[in-house]
């Protein structure tokens, strides 16, 4: 009797350290910040304010602007990055290519560079002045220096370019694993039936890689919705808040304006939005496979 209890308990005992940490650093803060989202913090004390934090957020033009910015970045960022990753994965999966390991490593390397260093690097590359490498190049080919940091659209473009540069290799590896799981026989059969490369891509590759593709898209959408470091370090949310993302808004609200209640409420709105989007994506993936 005693022995069987310990036998049953063993796996949970092994899990216990993780579960404890998970509870202390994830579950508890999640519930606590949910409670804080209905409170305000003043003079060292929290007091209940009902829904007023949520009401403030929904009426704040800056919060709307940040949602808009995040959505615009997302709409460009995700398709560009996933599309590029898929193309690269297909090329690297090809039979003809030599030195695959080398190219894979090259494309994967940016992910190993830490976010802060590469963000600072990009802010230097896209400097407004002629001293910025990109502007120097644009001047050389006759386009002239562009006001990267003073134009909302250009500043958003920097964020999309930077994030794509860093994450495309990561997504490529994920998609490559999906591509390698597609049976070669399918391609051979299609060749015998006279299908060309394009047809094979749309009728075999895409359906074959679909679940992995959806997984990559969900990761990318969630990642972009939580974008913070790049806009914080490259553009500092500027020009005129045109690149301020939702998470940067929450950071400013909590750590610069000391408004923990509104920041927590915003975090919950974001969590609900991410949850809904993920659910929708999973629905789409299930229906089509």
């Amino acid at each position: 009797m005693k022995k069987s209890f310990w036998k049953k308990a063993t796996p949970y005992l092994f899990l216990l350290p993780f579960l404890l940490l998970f509870f202390v650093f994830m579950i508890y803060p999640m519930f606590y910040s949910f409670a804080i989202s209905f409170m305000k913090y003043k003079a060292g004390n929290f007091s209940a304010v009902g829904l007023s934090n949520y009401r403030y957020l929904l009426g704040d033009p800056l919060f709307k602007q940040c949602i808009f910015n995040t959505v615009v970045i997302l709409v460009f960022q995700v398709p560009v990055m996933i599309g590029l990753a898929l193309i690269l994965a297909c090329i690297l999966n090809g039979k003809e290519l030599r030195g695959k390991a080398f190219f894979r490593l090259c494309i994967f390397l940016p992910i190993l560079i830490d976010t802060v260093s590469y963000s600072i690097e990009f802010s230097l590359l896209f400097n407004n002045k002629e001293t910025g490498l990109v502007n120097t190049f644009l001047s050389m080919i006759g386009i002239g220096a562009l006001p990267w940091m003073n134009d909302g659209t250009l500043a958003k473009a920097i964020i999309v370019i930077a994030v794509t540069w860093r994450w495309v290799g990561y997504n490529m590896i994920i998609l490559l694993s999906g591509l390698q799981a597609i049976p070669k026989e399918l391609y051979e059969a299609a060749s015998i039936d006279g299908a060309g490369r394009i047809k094979k891509f749309f009728y075999i590759t895409i359906p074959g890689v679909w679940p992995v593709l959806i997984f990559a898209v969900i990761l990318a959408v969630n990642g972009t919705l939580q974008l913070f470091t790049e806009p914080y370090l490259i553009t500092n949310g500027g020009p005129l808040n045109k690149t301020m993302t939702i998470v940067q808004y929450l950071y400013n609200m909590g750590f610069k304006k000391f408004n923990y209640g509104v920041a927590s409420a915003g975090a919950y709105l974001l969590a609900v939005a991410i949850g809904m989007l993920t659910w929708m994506q999973l629905r789409v993936s299930r229906r089509d496979t």
């Binding site: 305000k40 003043k42 403030y56 704040d60 209640g261 509104v262």
Partner: peptide, 10 residues
């Protein structure tokens, strides 16, 4: 107006 709105939540 925007500053006073955020202050009202404090």
């Amino acid at each position: 107006e925007a500053v006073n709105a955020i202050i009202a939540t404090k």
